[in-house]
């Protein structure tokens, strides 16, 4: 516990030093949403079932845009947190102040998740308050799913950081994972149109779970009970990936 607290403080100090980089991570998604709003808010949707509800293109695509933006930004945020401090780039801080591996793992993760929470809250505000998209659902449920996608992205970034051998590999793996999740999430091609076998597999992928839940919450106005299963699956992904990352990190020689 002591090691965890020290690692947490250390990471928070590190985040203070990286304030301009973190500011970029806060502003970038807001700019993307603002830009998307400027382009699509006056365009009426007329090619899906949702057209008869009088929706704009902005209302219809915001859940997809949020899913991609949140996942990409949070993965990117975390991807150098471990690999960036390994030799030859630097020395892992824990070696200098004798923090246990699990203490360092959770210290870094939790410190960054605090930032992810703030980031997701700002993204939620920009998409549903400052540039308001149609939302028939509960704002708390919508925020919860944005946050879960954010936490998954952060954990995925951490996983990549631990698994990679060098920075170049880590940076290459981020778009690889995010693009695969995006292609299979139903954002580009609706899941209903995919071959049945692929649709079954992709329906339990994290980005699919997140964006479909956001869509049904905001556009169909369903309650939390209808997306509860998706939430459990997403939590399962987060816990599973964290466990694998921790295991790999603890089994490393250095």
């Amino acid at each position: 516990m002591k090691g965890f607290t020290r690692a947490l403080k250390l990471e928070l100090e590190n985040m203070k030093e990286r304030k301009f980089s973190l500011l970029f991570y806060l502003i970038a998604p807001l700019l993307i949403i603002a830009l998307f709003y400027m382009i699509t808010s006056s365009l009426t949707l007329d090619w899906t079932n949702y057209a008869s509800m009088g929706l704009r293109i902005y209302d219809f695509y915001v859940p997809n845009i949020l899913g991609i933006v949140v996942l990409f930004i949070t993965t990117q945020l975390m991807v150098l947190r471990i690999i960036g401090e390994r030799a030859p780039y630097g020395t892992l801080d824990r070696e200098l102040i004798a923090i246990s591996k699990s203490g360092m793992f959770f210290g870094k993760l939790i410190a960054n998740l605090i930032f992810v929470f703030l980031q997701c809250f700002l993204i939620f505000l920009s998409a549903y308050v400052f540039f308001p998209a149609k939302n028939y659902g509960s704002p708390i449920s919508v925020f919860l799913f944005i946050l879960l996608i954010g936490i998954f992205g952060a954990v995925l970034g951490f996983f990549i950081s631990i698994m990679s051998k060098n920075k170049e590999q880590a940076v290459q793996l981020v778009p690889f994972f995010v693009l695969i999740l995006m292609v299979l999430s139903g954002i580009l091609i609706p899941i209903d149109l995919m071959p049945t076998d692929i649709a079954t597999i992709t329906s339990i992928f994290p980005l699919t779970l997140g964006t479909t839940s956001l869509k049904t919450l905001t556009l169909d106005g369903v309650g939390f009970e209808d997306v509860f299963g998706n939430m459990l699956f997403l939590i399962f992904w987060i816990v599973g990936l964290t466990f694998i990352s921790l295991l790999k990190f603890k089994l490393e020689r250095k």
Partner: peptide, 12 residues
């Protein structure tokens, strides 16, 4: 068309 539209939708 209408039948397909309304399935899954809610009235709160």
């Amino acid at each position: 068309i209408s039948a397909k539209i309304v399935v899954g939708k809610t009235l709160n």
